[in-house]
């Protein structure tokens, strides 16, 4: 199961893949694009495991399903050492944050009733909502264009917030709609 790319230099060891993506997972603060930028610097510029173009393709495909930071790691791992490389890259990337979040969640559940922690967390709640609002505005400015975009964004909001429809179904409907629209746009051009 070797990938289609033929490489002159000796193949990267599986251990090396795992270790590098562990490092990405441990130092990748800020989510999403911040992590992708870090991965790009390590994998393309420092290690030169894949070319910048290949990396960008991985990123483009990575946006289909799930978090693209994880998908980009899986893609690079696969290009290097096939299925084992891809799986190890994904596991290495997720392992540090999995352990940290599990530990914090455990501590949270154990000490949730403490007055001081309760107050601290109550202080973070409005800030988290503020952050989500800022993300909405930022994404809205970048991703919502034209009447059809605004119509879709507002209908999704109304369906989920006001009509309380199932969010997964709303999202699935949006995917179908967008796919049909993409086919239609291609037919036009």
């Amino acid at each position: 199961m070797t990938p289609t790319v033929t490489r002159q230099n000796p193949p990267v060891s599986l251990w090396e893949i795992f270790a590098l993506f562990c490092k990405v997972g441990l130092t990748g603060f800020g989510g999403g694009m911040a992590i992708v930028a870090l991965t790009e610097r390590m994998v393309v510029q420092e290690k030169q495991w894949v070319t910048a173009e290949e990396f960008l393709h991985g990123l483009a495909f990575g946006q289909i399903l799930g978090p693209f930071s994880l998908n980009t790691c899986t893609f690079v791992g696969y290009r290097l050492r096939g299925v084992a490389g891809g799986v190890l890259a994904a596991v290495g990337f997720l392992l540090p944050s999995f352990l940290i979040v599990s530990l914090l969640a455990w501590l949270y559940l154990r000490f949730q009733h403490l007055q001081l922690l309760k107050k601290a967390l109550a202080g973070t709640n409005p800030v988290v909502i503020g952050l989500i609002c800022a993300v909405v505005l930022d994404m809205g400015k970048k991703q919502v264009h034209g009447y059809s975009g605004w119509l879709l964004a507002l209908s999704a909001f109304a369906a989920a917030a006001l009509l309380q429809l199932n969010v997964a179904l709303v999202l699935a409907a949006a995917v179908v709609w967008a796919f049909v629209r993409a086919l239609y746009l291609r037919r036009l051009s």
Binding site: Q63, V144, A156, A160, L171, A174, V175, W177, A178, A182
Partner: peptide, 19 residues
């Protein structure tokens, strides 16, 4: 193009979460 088409709905849904 499909993904770009879905993103407005994602924006709306994240807004509904904030709501």
């Amino acid at each position: 193009v499909t993904l770009d088409g879905v993103l407005p709905a994602v924006v709306g849904l994240v807004a509904s979460a904030a709501w």
